[in-house]
Design a protein around this nucleic acid. Structure first.
Lengths: 149, 149
DNA sequence: CTACATATAATGTATGTACATATATTTGCA
DNA sequence: TGCAAATATATGTACATACATTATATGTAG
């Protein structure tokens, strides 16, 4: 749907204002859809993202610091997201023997299994991005990089 | 900065996956910067957006329903955002005389004054979008519309 | 070897998001 | 008229974000 209809605003001050609102609105749209897809599996999007990072490290452990570095949202609270995953038995936490300030976090078999079962959910096929051609997707990335440059 | 460096991921499965991450990451980047700019004025981004809608209606009142329709995030809790604005004296709440289920919400002089003082903050000049040409901004909007189509 | 700075994670608090439920009012219809 | 359904908002709960503070452990300068 056109942005004008989604947020019931007919006039934008400039293509810049419109693009700004569109980036923010579309990101919310994408994330809401994906979050809804993960809901039946009992995990949230941030929890899923942490699991993905842990699988990337597996069988090596990750620390909270490493999670923060890799997360999309650096200011989110990795400690408490790990809390939730630990309570569900999807990760384990163990004080790092070589540096007792740090904590080794590992994904469990149950965590790996959950990622397998949800493999297709995070696929471009169902995200909305499939409406673009590969070239258009690349072009979109370039424009977004330019915003942050 | 390039997305690869921002999230320390060197390889993307496809231009689709990269574009997806880029939309979400860039939206967060934009919103964090804007939120930080509003912080000294004691309001959050959702609160600012509600104030903008109320100024658009002024001197007519708005109802909670109208706020929800116009907000970027339809599932956010307009009631509680209005609570915060009311506590700061930026809006007033009054049971609607013609329909006592509804509540008339109006922006106060203090609210209007705050919007005046923050006028330039929400300007494209400082958002990051100024790195694009007008044509590029329009092209970006078109690509994003296509994702949601 | 102690004292102080730094590193690492956890905790506290305010706000917002997402969704379910509750409360009050109005409307429609038998 | 009376009562069920719909409408409008508020409230409850779980989780996340944003940011400040605290608790431990480690490193380092003198």
């Amino acid at each position: 749907m056109k942005l004008e209809d989604e947020i019931q605003q007919r006039v934008f001050k400039s293509p810049y204002q419109k693009a700004y609102l569109n980036v923010v609105f579309t990101a919310g749209w994408l994330q809401q859809r994906l979050a809804a897809a993960f809901k039946p599996y009992g995990i949230t999007l941030p929890q899923y993202n942490v699991l993905r990072i842990l699988r990337g490290q597996h069988p090596k452990p990750a620390t909270v610091n490493l999670l923060i570095e890799r997360m999309l949202d650096k200011t989110s609270n990795a400690s408490r997201i790990v809390d939730k995953l630990e309570a569900k038995g999807l990760v384990t936490r163990q004080v790092c023997p070589s540096n007792r300030r740090a904590v080794d976090i590992r994904i469990t078999e149950a965590g790996l299994d959950l990622l397998l079962r949800t493999e297709e959910l995070a696929n471009a096929q169902h995200s909305g991005l499939e409406n673009l051609s590969g070239d258009e997707a690349a072009q979109l990335s370039d424009l977004l990089d330019k915003i942050r440059s």
